[in-house]
Amino acid sequence: KRLSEREFDPDIHCGVIDLDTKKPCTRSLTCKTHSLTQRRAVQGRRKRFDVLLAEHKNKTR
Rank of each mutant, 00 (worst) to 15 (best):
R2I: 15
R2G: 14
R2D: 12
R2V: 15
S4R: 04
S4I: 06
S4N: 08
S4T: 13
E5P: 10
E5A: 09
E5M: 11
R6L: 15
R6S: 10
E7C: 09
E7M: 15
E7T: 11
F8T: 03
F8I: 06
D9F: 06
P10M: 06
D11T: 07
D11Q: 14
D11S: 13
D11M: 10
I12V: 10
H13T: 03
D18K: 07
L19A: 13
L19H: 09
D20R: 06
D20T: 10
T21H: 13
K22H: 10
K22R: 13
K22F: 06
K22T: 12
K23M: 13
P24C: 05
P24T: 05
C25P: 01
C25Y: 00
T26S: 09
T26P: 06
T26E: 08
T26Q: 13
R27V: 07
R27S: 13
R27I: 06
S28P: 15
L29I: 09
L29M: 05
T30W: 08
K32W: 04
K32S: 11
K32N: 08
K32T: 07
T33M: 13
T33H: 10
T33E: 14
T33S: 13
H34D: 00
H34N: 01
H34L: 00
S35T: 09
L36I: 15
T37C: 13
Q38A: 15
R39Q: 11
R40W: 06
A41P: 01
A41V: 07
A41Q: 08
Q43L: 11
Q43H: 04
Q43A: 14
G44T: 04
G44R: 04
R45V: 01
R45P: 02
R46E: 12
R46L: 09
K47F: 08
K47P: 02
K47M: 11
F49C: 04
D50Q: 02
L52F: 02
L53F: 06
L53T: 04
L53Q: 01
A54D: 13
A54C: 09
E55N: 06
E55G: 05
H56M: 08
N58Q: 15
N58P: 10
N58T: 14
N58C: 09
K59D: 11
R61F: 12
R61E: 15
R61K: 14
